[in-house]
Each structure stands twice: as structure tokens, then as C-alpha cells.
Simulated scan of single mutants.
Amino acid sequence: MNPDDTRSRRWRLVLGTAAEPELGGLGSADDTAMDSALGGLYDAGDEQSTGKRSAGLGGSAPRVARWLGDIRTYFPSTVVEVMQRDAVDRLNLTQLLLEPELLEAVEPDVHLVGTLLSLNKVMPETTKATARTVVERVVRDIERRIAAHTRAAVSGALNRAARIARPRPRDIDWDRTIRKNLAHYLPEHRTVVPERLVGYGRKAQAVRREVVLAIDQSGSMAASVVYASVFGAVLASMRTLKTSLIVFDTEVVDLTERLADPVEVLFGTQLGGGTDINRALAYGQSLITRPADTLFVLISDLYEGGIEQEMLRRVNAMKEAGVQVVVLLALSDDGAPAYDHENAAALAALDIPAFACTPDKFPDLLATALDRGDIRSWVDRNAG
């Protein structure tokens, strides 16, 4: 197929049958099937406005399941995930996700998990086992991708925090020792004579840092809840950290006891509802026993339904007590989030930047924070 034909074919698939007089028809059975799958979603409802099509997925789970099978046949998984999300939004398929037959046909992704969790309380028992399998597949995939990087980054930060000036020979950090003593280089001997040794203390199993994750579980934060739960489980597996995880809307739920299994954490959430950040901060404060050794991560879009000034006062009080406070507007790959700009600006005035972070950057952010690094500089280097 020459380039012009390829271009015409693609535009014809994008624009639908309305463009056929100008661009020509589709030449293969596969193209016709792809066109039908696209039309079932993106032409639904167009019949009244254009009279061109009467496509749509209808109201039955079996028909939707067949459509899901079609799109997985003809499109890559990244495109399938987008089409699935569009189907839920455009065709109001939320209720059909309660059908086991439909769940078995979907391409699992973070957004689907968020939708399933929001339906958790109304999900029939016949569907729960299938839904749990879908959620577990997504969680284990995320865990495989982020666990090693997170442990390595956090362990490095904790080890640096344990650095000592009089290490035993086998604990000497030679790279840093040489850098610290370059002024004592002897050219005639081509060596450095160190006046000061730098190294690490022996690794102890004692807790070195406390981490509190406070996650807004309003509906818009679904992807952030999924990622934060997995990160929380990874951090909880590290003995040198004491990790707590709470989720909140207008109520606060402490899920720390479930951190051994992030799937259990997720099924302990209830997405949707209002938001009382101040109440969550108050509970989170009560978990802190060593302020100077604590990292508090608030993950929220900052749309406060409680008392805004009290929220800001409480965050500032934690900071003044020595707690390292990080505010994430989102922990996801969804792009720029919607958030309360006034509250974000008020936090910035307290020298607490509020910003979005992608999951792949989060381990390095954790390492910087645990190492008492400059979070503002980290944001400047990693923004955009």
C-alpha cells in the first residue's frame, strides 16, 4: 500500500463512513471490523444528529464483552485502555462492569481498578471474585515495576543518613572520602592522603524513619490511590521504616494493618464522597512519634471541605516541629491534575510546595525527602 493510500485509510477509520465519498471505502475485512469497533463507541448517539449511523454497544453485557474482544484483537493494549475508559464515560457502562462475563474480557489498567473500587459496595458476590482478580493483576504488575527501584532509592537514602566520620575499614565510603580530601592530593605520589574518612554505620534493623501516607479517596484521585497503596506496601516491607497509611474523605480510615497486601488496602478504600483534609491531618499527626525523623506525604487535590485555615495551620505546625511534609496533587501518569490553586499557593507560602508526581519519579522523591534534601530543587529538576 502506497503512503497516500495508507493516509486515506487512516483518516477514513478516524472519520467514519461520513468520509467515505471523499476517501473511499475500506478494502479488507480487518479494516471493516476495526471500523465497526470504533463506530460502536465513537458514533454512538450520532444517529439523531446526522442520520448516518445507528451504532452503539447496546445495553447487554455479552455484546459489550464481544466488543471488548474485538478491540483487543485489532488495537494495541495502550489504545484498548483508552477506548475502555471512553466506553465507560460515553456509554455509561459502569453498571455493566458488575457482570463477571464483562470483567473477564477487559484489559486491566489503573483506571479500571479505580472504577471497580468505586463500585465495591454495590458489587454482587458473584462479581467480587472476578473483580478481585482484575485488581490483583494490575497491582502485581505495578509492584513488579516499582518495587526494586523504590527499595534501592530508599535504602540508599537511609544509608546516607547513617554515614559516620570514623568508619571501620570495611565501612569506608571510598568515593566520598576521596572527594572530601582532594585538597590533600600528592602529585609526586599520585595519591590522596585523607585527613577525614567518610563511611556508613553498620546496618541496623532499628527504625530510622517514619513515613505517613495520607491519601485523599475522592473520586478524582482514583489512580493516585492505586499507586500510593502499592508504594505503601513496598515501604512497609522495609524494616528500617515505620510506614502508616490512611485514606480519607470526610472520614479517616487507617489501613496500616493491611499494608502486607496492597490488594487488601485497595478493597479497604471507598472512592468518592466529600473531603476533610484537616481531619486526616489531625489523625496523621497522632501517628507521629519522632517528628524530626518523619516524612508526611499528603496526596490530595486540596479541595478542602473542612476548615481551610485550620488545615494550613496544622500543616505548618508539623513542619515547624521538624516533620518533612510533601504534598502531591496527584501520583499518576494522567497529566496535569485539577486542584485548588489557592490552597496550593498558601502551602507554597509556608515553604511546602504542592506538585504532581508520576509513579516512576516517586522513588527518587522519597529518597530526596528521607535524605532531608531540597524538595524545591528536586521539583525544579523534575518538573515537566
Rank of each mutant, 00 (worst) to 15 (best):
V265M: 06
L271W: 04
N316F: 09
E251M: 03
E308Q: 13
S229N: 08
G232L: 03
V263M: 02
V379W: 12
S54H: 13
G384H: 14
A344K: 07
D254F: 00
R12L: 12
T17L: 14
V110Y: 05
R381P: 10
E107R: 13
V14L: 15
D276E: 05
L26A: 07
A348F: 04
A153T: 09
D89C: 12
L57I: 13
W11Y: 14
S220Y: 04
R258L: 11
E143T: 07
I277C: 02
E195R: 14
A105M: 12
T250G: 05
A317T: 02
L119A: 00
Y200A: 09
V64M: 15
E104Y: 10
V82F: 14
R196N: 08
D175N: 12
N278L: 10
L13D: 11
G114Y: 02
T269Q: 04
E81S: 15
G40V: 07
A161K: 09
S332V: 01
P76N: 03
D86N: 11
I172G: 15
I246W: 01
E195P: 08
A383C: 14
R258A: 11
P62W: 09
P21A: 08
T50K: 08
V212S: 07
P187G: 00
L93R: 06
G51W: 06
R239N: 08
R137C: 00
E99K: 11
L97D: 04
R209M: 13
Q95A: 11
L26E: 15
L366T: 05
P167N: 04
L116A: 01
P108S: 03
A345S: 12
Y227M: 06
E188L: 09
A29R: 13
A346H: 05
P262K: 00
E210V: 08
L119K: 01
T240P: 06
E320T: 09
K180H: 11
V113R: 03
L347S: 00
P169D: 10
P363I: 02
D30I: 06
T17G: 15
Q217L: 02
S229I: 06
I375Y: 06
V323Y: 02
R10L: 15
S220A: 06
S218M: 03
G114V: 00
V139E: 00
S54D: 15
S300K: 08
H189T: 08
A321R: 10
N181K: 00
A345I: 07
E125L: 06
S224T: 05
T177C: 13
Q324A: 05
E99L: 07
K242R: 11
W11M: 14
H149I: 12
R202A: 11
